[in-house]
């Protein structure tokens, strides 16, 4: 009911708009021809009679007013729109905004990839230790060749991908990273304890790398153990 009434109102308003536009058109069309006809008729009565010339003067005044009213709405909106300077300024500002946005996106991407993905210390140590274990024959004999490494014994993907680690600095300012992770092969599985420190030549070196094999038989294997160089003169 309300919808139908609203639609009727819209139709009535549309008819009203059409009527107003038609009335405007009808008003505009007779205004254009009258001036030349009046001028032509005005010239003849001036040469013949004085009373007719006065009447034609009044009509010409009215025609001038109508012409002035007609010209204003046509000229005003067309001549007041400048295009080129505004377009150039807007384009420049948009370019600056786009460059700023791209800069922010690049900075965010750089921070994400550099700080969080490429350089976590625990994953670096984990990769080195796992490669050392996969290439070793003692471990390969016991648990088989394709050796998989994962962080925690769980079915959750995030838990398996997270490596338990601890980072500490000793009294000489050397940075140490300890990691624990699990390894699994076709014939058995085990747990790995590894610690590395950053040496004087800025390279990571093993402090210890202990593999505790739990299946198929229990065993402990020390693959790496750091012994500092000793000189009697110091």
């Amino acid at each position: 009911m309300f919808r139908r009434i609203l639609s009727h109102h819209r139709a009535l308003s549309a008819c009203a708009h059409n009527a107003t536009t038609r009335s405007l058109v009808t008003r505009r069309t007779p205004n254009v021809p009258p001036p030349p006809t009046f001028l032509i008729t005005g010239s003849r009565p001036v040469s013949s009679k004085t009373s007719q010339s006065n009447e034609t003067g009044e009509t010409t005044n009215k025609a001038k007013k109508d012409v002035a009213n007609v010209e204003d709405p046509f000229s005003a909106p067309t001549y007041n729109i400048p295009e080129k300077p505004v377009t150039f300024v807007e384009g420049a500002s948009y370019g600056v905004v786009i460059l700023a946005g791209l800069g922010i996106a690049a900075a965010a991407g750089y921070a994400v990839f550099k700080e969080l993905i490429f350089q976590p210390k625990e994953y670096k140590i984990y990769n080195k230790a796992l490669k050392r274990i996969q290439d070793d024959g003692q471990i390969r004999v016991r648990i088989g060749f394709p050796i998989t490494g994962y962080g925690q014994e769980s079915r959750n993907r995030a838990a398996r991908q997270r490596i338990p680690h601890r980072v500490w600095t000793d009294e000489e300012g050397v940075e140490h990273v300890e990691v624990n992770f699990y390894i699994r092969g076709p014939h058995g599985h085990g747990k790995v304890f590894a610690e590395m420190f950053k040496g004087a030549d800025n390279e990571w070196k093993f402090t210890y790398l202990i593999v505790e094999i739990r299946a198929p038989s229990t065993a402990q294997i020390i693959l790496e153990s750091y012994i500092p160089s000793y000189s009697a003169t110091k």
């Binding site: 993905i117 990769n127 796992l130 394709p146 050796i147 998989t148 490494g149 991908q161």
Partner: peptide, 9 residues
């Protein structure tokens, strides 16, 4: 033969 965040990516 290892599990780390690169696998998910």
């Amino acid at each position: 033969q290892k599990e780390d965040p690169w696998n998910s990516i």
